[in-house]
Simulated assay, not measured.
Amino acid sequence: MESLQVIFLALIQGLTEFLPISSSGHLILPAQLLGWEDQGLSFDVAVNTGSLFAVIIYFRTEIVTLTQAWIKSFATGTQTQESKLSWWILLATIPAVIVGFMAKDFIETHLRNTLVIAITTIFFGLLLWVADRMSKAQLNEFQMGWKKALLIGVAQAMALIPGTSRSGATMTAALMLGLTREAAARFSFLMSIPVSCGAALLVTKDLIESPLPIDYQALGLGLVVSFVAAYICIHYFLKFISQIGMTPFVIYRLILGSILLGLLYL
């Protein structure tokens, strides 16, 4: 991959990973529409790892607090709101791990195409709009309970389908379950960490064992660029989400999905 292509794709991933518009879909589209060779899952995970570092560093204080409370709960046998949230994040990770393990090959082979992205972009965009409009918006992330966390985890598993958007699906579910926009976004960001860590470790193992040449320079550049873009995106998304709501992202998804369908059938 040329450096300009790497930077372009990494910027797309970093800016879209935490917005409800599907980073995986945007990474697939350049290859489909511009005739570029598909960058492959390894590059996708490399730039996702950059985004992972961004969310870890941005929420470093919260992560330390949650981890300490989780460890302390074993020693004392008592649960605080922080330790409960830690357990809920882990619980919400389970569906994506199961679906990812069982359906990884099928998704890579059959679902990484423009038609699937167009359909999921429109459908889940409309679902996000409904959730944002109907949300009671009363609960923060410490008040939702394990059942709601598990349901949000199921939504995260559905987002393995390209074009769905992991953050979009999880925030949609959280809004439907009564979380505020800010709480939905924070929980979505925090629950991305275990899944992204697991994916990064698995692909790193595959890269080490692969007999094919690996462009580590491209992977490294992509990781750095996506880290910077994702960090900026997290900051401003959390700053303005309560004011702007989800409607701008819904409109974008509908326009993008319609353009993709037009390119396919006109």
Rank of each mutant, 00 (worst) to 15 (best):
T61H: 11
I117T: 04
I255V: 15
Y236T: 04
V154K: 08
F101Q: 13
L223K: 00
A183R: 01
I122N: 00
P194N: 05
S188K: 00
A169F: 07
L190Q: 07
S24Y: 05
E108Y: 09
V47G: 00
H26N: 06
M102H: 11
G222K: 05
I152L: 14
A92D: 04
I122M: 05
S192R: 05
L11Q: 05
L264V: 10
F106R: 04
T109R: 09
S167R: 00
E17R: 02
V6N: 02
F18M: 02
I56D: 06
L219A: 06
G77C: 10
L127C: 08
L151H: 06
L264I: 15
Q68L: 13
Q13S: 05
H110E: 11
L190D: 06
F227Y: 07
S242C: 10
Q79P: 12
I98E: 08
F237T: 07
A157D: 01
S196E: 12
L263C: 12
L160Y: 12
I214H: 13
Y231M: 13
A69Q: 03
K72T: 14
A185I: 06
W36I: 06
Q243W: 10
I122E: 02
L19C: 12
S22G: 02
Y236N: 05
G262T: 10
Q243A: 14
F101A: 13
P211C: 05
A159D: 08
T172V: 09
P20I: 01
K147H: 14
A131W: 14
Y252S: 10
W146C: 09
L29W: 04
K84M: 10
E82A: 13
A184F: 07
S192F: 07
T109W: 08
L175A: 11
D206R: 14
A75T: 14
P95L: 05
G163K: 00
S22Q: 02
L263E: 12
A159N: 09
A10R: 03
F123Q: 03
E141H: 14
A137K: 15
I244P: 00
D44T: 07
L27H: 04
L264H: 13
F101E: 12
G100H: 02
F53A: 13
A118H: 01
K136V: 11
